[in-house]
Design a protein around this nucleic acid. Structure first.
Lengths: 340, 340
DNA sequence: ACTGCAATCGTTATCGGTTACGTTTCCAGG
DNA sequence: CCTGGAAACGTAACCGATAACGATTGCAGT
């Protein structure tokens, strides 16, 4: 790296080319009113000095910046999947991406982070923003699309069909003959967590199995939150024959705890997750889970935001993507129960 | 999301509080020279209007912004690991993080992307930047730390001890009795790729085994690039008994191809990777690999950048982190060879 | 009441661009 | 040669903030 003291600015180019900054600006943005000769001179000066327009200065004056923002409060492996999808949707679209993350709320959870990040960016820097798992409503001058919105949100959003997915997962367990099915829930202020719990209850009720509240552990989607909950469930005398976790990260922790306690999966315990993160295909046994493509969520969110910004969005403002049950080795009929 | 037409600016606050913008600025930044009563009025107006300072405007005027930048050309799973480390190092440091990604170069590789991103950000927005796997030198007004720098770079950087790691990996294979060892290389403009190949050659030469150039395939660290190379190596009549791939992503592809071709691992073929990404622990058999903690690289790079920005960096400007051979199930002595 | 100094606060230039508007240049037509 | 109008270009205001500087106020000391 070479330390350069003076960053080359537009007035440097103007001076070198013997014109005003207004003319340089016109050349840079391809506006009308510059002769071919002047334009060539300016362009040559730009080349020679290695001028690159400042995103900051431009965005301050202009309304459109062709930059989309994404705010998140953490980087998990699903975040990377989302980002891949977003980048794919944005590829060669003319929109760049800026991701903003506040270091202060690492680990801890400060209320309203999404709003603070948003106002800092969306004032001028970005034409619109994607917010990943916001915990509340946000307001902004520019369009905002939420991935996994907060409960009761009416804002534009992209989410998976959590209700259908969770219902299918538990019905799968019920179909195998399980009746005592534990559940490890996610953060309750997220609509996704709520719907997955709703699916759990719906499936049980639909099969005539009463919901046993003591079989429900309250996690927060964070893998670490699941370990003690799994331990509590599995050390009971009347432990469940199956556990449905609201995320793969938590489900993998259940597998870990089961291994520790000498409980074999799927022999003594069936486990189902939700998300289908890459790791879940690679465990032994493979994790049965509900596929929600985080890649797809990111892709759709970016596509929608792009259209909202350009004002050409036609479809519904709340997109629900289908989920799919992926049956792997972690589920089997319960050992000591006859299939009903 | 609520669409708000007028973003509340500092002059709005000033008008509401009956003071000038300078006073508001002083209150916001906690500067000297505001009476307690005025300060309270301003603070109340800020609260009432929901004012949040514009990052853009601030950064344009100020030299320090307390925002660090990170530029990357893609989001892989290792990128997520790096980001986790970076965020950890930045947690509660007062520095926020901005990641900039250009959508134009998704998939394709455009020369000089790192410089373009950098100039757009580092003009004013950021106090310094981390560049992930740059392909060349960059220059900037503010400090830059490279993760996995380009070859021959003398700029501040953080990298793993690729030479020692690769040497250890190949020595491990040699120790098991392998003599025909294939190598799948990475992008040659990265120092890391070069060092890993160097380690491969060093270990072979050290053991008196001549380097067979036909056993070296040239990949680019991208998993997809490895499949045809692995296929070519494994379909030869005199196929190698072991393959060392310069990245886990590529090594996993080798496992895939071997499975397709009905070659059992580690029975008929030993495979070693480099990186130790999470997925490599979860395959069957587990992948023997060289651990370089991407998390750690991100952590150290952020720590270094932070100190460079504040001007208190004492240590060396080129940090090399140790690597560690992780032996799992994918390596074993070659079948038809007696241990020497 | 008057002076002097510090505390408080407003005015204004500035960061690097964009753009409305005004001025100059150029050329065709009368 | 003169005029009109469009093209080409410069001037200056402006985006939202910060900070140097100047102006005002308050209050203790005489």
């Amino acid at each position: 790296m070479t330390e350069v003291n003076a960053p080359v600015t537009m007035s440097d180019v103007a001076r070198a080319a013997g014109v005003s900054t207004a003319t340089v600006s016109r050349v840079v943005n391809g506006h009308y009113g510059v002769s071919a000769r002047t334009s060539a001179q300016v362009r040559s000066a730009i080349e020679r000095l290695g001028y690159e327009s400042s995103l900051v200065a431009t965005s301050l004056r202009r309304s459109r910046t062709n930059v989309l923002g994404l705010v998140t409060h953490s980087f998990q492996s699903y975040t990377a999947e989302v980002l891949k999808g977003v980048m794919k949707a944005l590829s060669r679209s003319g929109f760049d991406l800026i991701i903003y993350a506040n270091s202060d709320l690492y680990g801890s959870y400060s209320e309203g982070w999404e709003q603070r990040h948003l106002t800092r960016l969306s004032g001028t820097l970005t034409d619109g923003c994607i917010v990943v798992t916001p915990w509340g409503e946000v307001q902004s001058r520019t369009p905002v699309v939420a991935i996994d919105p907060a409960r009761h949100s009416t804002a534009p959003s992209v989410t998976a069909d959590n209700l259908a997915g969770a219902t299918a997962a538990v019905e799968h367990l019920l179909g195998l003959g399980h009746r005592r099915i534990g559940f490890i829930a996610g953060r309750s202020n997220l609509a996704a967590a709520w719907s997955r719990e709703e699916g759990y209850r719906t499936a049980l009720t639909g099969a005539g199995v009463p919901v046993d509240l003591t079989l429900i552990g309250r996690g927060d989607f964070n893998p670490e939150s699941a370990s003690p909950l799994a331990r509590a469930l599995l050390q009971r005398a009347d432990r469940p024959t199956a556990i449905f976790a609201a995320s793969d990260g938590m489900a993998l922790k259940v597998l870990e705890v089961a291994k520790e306690l000498g409980i074999s999966v799927p022999g003594d315990l069936s486990v189902v997750g939700f998300d289908n993160i890459p790791e879940s295909a690679l465990t032994e046994p493979g994790l049965t889970t509900v596929d929600q493509s985080m890649y797809q969520l990111g892709y759709e969110a970016a596509r929608m935001l792009k259209s909202l910004v350009t004002g050409e969005w036609e479809g519904p403002r709340q997109v629900v993507l289908p989920t799919r049950l992926v049956v792997r080795g972690s589920t089997a009929p319960p050992k000591s129960t006859t299939r009903s």
